[in-house]
Computed example of a mutant assay.
Amino acid sequence: MEIVKNTVVTLDYKVRDPDGNIVDNGEQPLVYLHGGYDGIFPLLEETLHGKNKGETLQVKLQPDDAFGEYDESLVHIEDASLFPDNVEVGMAFERVGDDGEDDMLYRITDVADGKVVVDGNHPLAGTALVFDITIADVRPASQEEITHGHVHGPHGHHHH
């Protein structure tokens, strides 16, 4: 079956950076509803369109097509007193957005001399990504999946 709008696609995949380091070893297959539902990066979806079950492909996404360019303005130095005593590099904090602003996830990238450096960039911002993909399965989406705009079932999205 061909990948067209309103098909559910299962991908076996690995993601590497341009130096060949594994970014995501794809332990779980990626299952998404095809056809502009924002299930995967738009450029990936465009590349997969019209392909068939069993095909393999490699897609390279530039930062703009993946997690965006690195934005220096999202890096802030805060006073350590604003954070819990056990604050350490690698921790993440969600800052709830003001009226209409999205919530932001900030990662701690440095802790020194009573100051904490927080970075609102996605860990993969500024990184090109190379996807090695095998199309494992393609099936028609159910009417409910189309209505909700995402996949249901064992690998899909669950409503809480």
Rank of each mutant, 00 (worst) to 15 (best):
N6M: 06
N6Q: 10
T7L: 08
V8P: 07
V9G: 11
T10I: 06
T10M: 11
D12T: 11
Y13G: 05
Y13E: 05
K14P: 00
K14H: 08
K14A: 14
R16Y: 14
R16L: 12
D17W: 10
D17P: 05
P18L: 14
P18C: 01
D19A: 14
D19M: 13
D19Q: 13
I22D: 10
I22A: 09
I22Q: 06
I22W: 08
V23G: 01
V23Y: 09
D24R: 01
D24N: 15
E27G: 11
E27L: 14
Q28E: 14
Q28W: 12
Q28G: 06
Q28C: 07
Q28F: 13
P29K: 12
P29G: 03
L30M: 10
Y32T: 03
L33P: 07
H34L: 03
G35F: 02
G36D: 04
Y37G: 01
Y37P: 05
Y37T: 05
Y37M: 07
G39A: 04
I40Y: 06
F41K: 04
F41A: 09
P42K: 03
P42I: 08
L43S: 12
L44C: 10
E46G: 12
T47N: 11
L48D: 07
L48T: 05
L48P: 08
G50C: 08
G50Y: 09
G50Q: 09
K51Q: 13
K51W: 10
K51N: 12
N52V: 12
N52S: 14
N52P: 00
K53S: 09
K53Y: 05
E55F: 09
E55N: 08
T56A: 13
T56Q: 14
L57C: 15
Q58T: 15
Q58R: 14
V59D: 07
L61G: 01
L61C: 05
Q62K: 14
Q62I: 11
Q62R: 10
P63Q: 04
P63R: 06
P63F: 08
P63L: 06
D64K: 14
D64N: 15
Y70Q: 01
Y70G: 00
Y70M: 01
D71T: 00
D71M: 05
E72F: 03
E72W: 00
L74R: 13
L74T: 11
V75D: 08
H76F: 15
H76T: 10
